[in-house]
Amino acid sequence: MGLLVTTRGTGQGGPEARVVASGAAYDMDSGQISRARDFVRAFLSDARSLHGLDVPARAMDLAQLVVSELATNVCKYAPGPCLLDLEVDGGMLGITMWDSGSVLPAAHGADPARAGQHGLEIVLAVCQSFEVRREPVGKRVRVQISLLEGPHGEPAGFSPW
């Protein structure tokens, strides 16, 4: 897997920040979900070992969970081509998934009796941001997961929730 590494200045005379990014394309079916999770694990492992970025185990696990949930939604509601882009920029991991489906995802209200359809609720609970955009073809879902940790291993940094 090739990682794209760029360096950005802060514009204020401060230290430069490295951005590590990579992407993958899938013809999404249920067999591809594990490949997408493996891609996330390999990307974050390389970001850690090759570029010295701090990637806590919590973030590694959450990123794989989020990609699994997003990929499952693609399989259910928009099977076909799917693009997965990952980017570490500062203390945040950005996960962007594009698919060809036109229906935007929506979280259901809380219902403990409901079997299944909790994936988006899980994603919203563990991510620091969530954005969905219609594209000329399909939609793009972008989430961010904090790579920063608080004193007790919880995510640190901004969270709108």
Rank of each mutant, 00 (worst) to 15 (best):
S45I: 07
D85N: 13
E149Q: 11
Y26I: 03
S34M: 13
Q144W: 08
P56G: 05
S146I: 03
E87P: 01
F39I: 02
A17P: 08
Q128N: 13
G101N: 06
R58W: 02
A106H: 12
A125H: 07
G90C: 03
A17W: 08
A47H: 02
E149D: 14
V143D: 00
S30V: 13
P79F: 05
V67G: 04
E69M: 02
L44V: 02
V74R: 01
G157Q: 05
L62D: 10
G157A: 04
G11P: 02
W98D: 12
D99W: 03
S100P: 07
P112H: 10
G138D: 04
V66C: 01
I122D: 00
S102E: 15
F130D: 00
Y77S: 10
Q144N: 15
G91L: 07
D27K: 11
F158S: 09
P56T: 04
G13E: 02
T72F: 07
P81M: 09
R133V: 13
L124H: 09
A63K: 01
T6L: 12
P160F: 13
I33H: 02
P136A: 12
A42V: 11
M60T: 11
G157C: 06
H118E: 10
D46S: 10
G101Y: 05
G150M: 07
V5K: 07
Q12A: 15
R41L: 09
M1S: 14
C75A: 09
Q128E: 14
L3N: 05
Y77E: 10
G157D: 04
P105E: 05
G119N: 04
G14V: 06
S30L: 13
L4K: 13
D99F: 03
A17L: 15
G23A: 11
V132Q: 05
G2V: 15
D29E: 12
T7Y: 03
G23E: 10
D54W: 03
